[in-house]
């Protein structure tokens, strides 16, 4: 748009252009047709939580016939009162995104390929490796001969999505393995 056109319109004054047919509301049918397709109509509301940061905004997931159709902020949740940031507002795209991982992927040491694995295999692998590492590296006594019962080669990364109670349980489980290195990143 050039300045000349704008100045011209300005000179005329927007209201001086006058009312045309479309502005008098003769188009009720058109407007109704436009409004008739609310995409969450009849969908079930399921409560969920945004996975991105420690604020843990609650969302409403709209589900129809077992399929997610839309997401938006939950106005009844006191933390976000229906609001969401750009990440939370884009949750539905995260779900429909073709790049989203839906199965565990495994890359073997020195391999350059990812291989799809099922959850049983994956969880067994994790358990196996934790157990092997613990058996190999458990330190019962330090140089001074004091009992320490610790594994220095395992590390626990926590999540700010966990509640106090969940943190207590995770903490106890991890301590019972002898792990002492724990941290948490407030954004994940």
């Amino acid at each position: 748009m050039n300045t000349t056109r704008r100045s011209f319109l300005k000179l005329m004054g927007v209201s001086a252009v006058g009312l045309s047919l479309g502005q008098l509301g003769f188009d009720l049918a058109e407007a109704q047709a436009y409004a008739s397709k609310l995409k969450i109509e009849g969908a079930k509301e399921v409560g969920s939580v945004c996975p991105f940061c420690s604020v843990c905004c609650q969302i409403i997931a709209y589900v129809r016939n077992g399929k997610l159709v839309s997401t938006e902020g939950d106005p009844d949740f006191p933390v976000n009162e229906g609001a969401l940031c750009a990440k939370g507002a884009a949750l539905f795209s995260m779900y429909t995104n073709p790049h989203r991982l839906t199965k565990p992927l495994y890359r073997a040491p020195f391999s350059d390929k990812w291989v799809e694995k099922d959850w049983d295999w994956t969880l067994n692998q994790i358990a196996r490796r934790v157990k092997d590492t613990r058996d190999k590296d458990m330190v019962l006594k330090n140089e001074k001969g004091q009992t320490v019962n610790r594994v220095d080669t395992l590390f626990m990364m926590g999540t700010s999505h966990a509640s106090n109670e969940e943190c207590a349980v995770i903490h106890q489980a991890i301590r019972s393995l002898g792990m002492v290195q724990m941290d948490h990143q407030a954004r994940v």
Partner: peptide
Amino acid sequence: ACRGCQLACKEWHD
């Protein structure tokens, strides 16, 4: 300028 509005608009309109 969090752009929540910009993204929400896209999502709602698919």
